[in-house]
């Protein structure tokens, strides 16, 4: 198991965002996390990258304990790629520098080596011709594809997608999902928070349904989407399908 989440809880003031959540992900698996808004999906993903404090429980990714208070937490984070809903590209750097920067600063790669890797990845997401442009000149779908290339450039062992297509215009969702689909088929371990049930059905090895900070149900798409066991799951799916 490359990702082991054991009994984690996360609270913001009086609100319990995650309540004793456990989740194991095998290497190469794609796990889609679905659920109503406010159910804790994003919080779960953010905990996996130590962007939120967990109150109890533990998270182990590839043998490393993910703890925000850990002094070397930045070295653990670089093994985990994250793609954000709002892209969070660096607006002052062009596309190539966006993908290069952390490779040079964090992975200590030379400029030539980093550029070569960046160009391969940009070609992979179909944006090699945009390397000189600034994020402000790109469409939403293009920004998100650059963000994916930027995360991949660190050779992460796990990729986290936090509602990667939720801020996109409908006609741009497809191009981002296509990149994610290809990544999944290449064997990347992925945790995907998504509202795209179609994508989850097609790509996920397992779907996890989260509600009120708890995992209500999980299973392969064929089971969970077609024949859900819990009433909450049924109600949710009735609304979104």
């Amino acid at each position: 198991m490359i990702v082991q989440v054991k009994d984690i809880s996360c609270r913001f003031g009086d609100i319990t965002a995650l309540d004793a959540v456990s989740l194991d992900v095998a290497k190469g698996d794609v796990v889609c996390i679905i659920g109503p808004s406010g159910s804790g999906k994003s919080t779960l993903l953010r905990c996996l990258n130590a962007l939120e404090d967990i109150e109890s429980g533990e998270i182990i990714i590839d043998g490393m304990n993910v703890d925000r208070r850990h002094r070397q937490i930045h070295q653990i984070r670089l093994e985990i790629g994250m793609v954000f809903q709002h892209f969070n590209l660096f607006p002052h750097l062009n596309v190539l520098r966006n993908v290069n920067l952390a490779q040079q600063v964090v992975r200590n790669r030379g400029k030539a080596e980093a550029t070569q890797i960046s160009l391969e990845l940009l070609a992979k997401v179909g944006l090699a011709d945009k390397m000189d442009q600034y994020p402000g000149q790109l469409s939403g779908g293009q920004k998100q594809r650059v963000a994916i290339a930027r995360a991949l450039a660190m050779n992460p062992k796990v990729m986290l997608f936090d509602e990667a297509t939720s801020a996109l215009d409908p006609e741009m969702i497809g191009e981002v999902l296509e990149v994610m689909r290809r990544l999944a088929s290449e064997g990347m371990t992925m945790l995907v928070v998504t509202h795209e049930i179609g994508f989850a059905r097609e790509v996920a090895d397992r779907i996890v349904f989260l509600d009120n900070g708890k995992i209500i149900e999980s299973g392969p798409p064929a089971d969970l989407l077609v024949n859900p066991q819990q009433t909450r799951t049924k109600e949710f799916l009735a609304k979104v399908l």
Binding site: H74, R77, M82, F84, N88, A102
Partner: peptide, 8 residues
Amino acid sequence: EAAMSLGM
């Protein structure tokens, strides 16, 4: 957050 997630 983006910078931290890249290990900076």
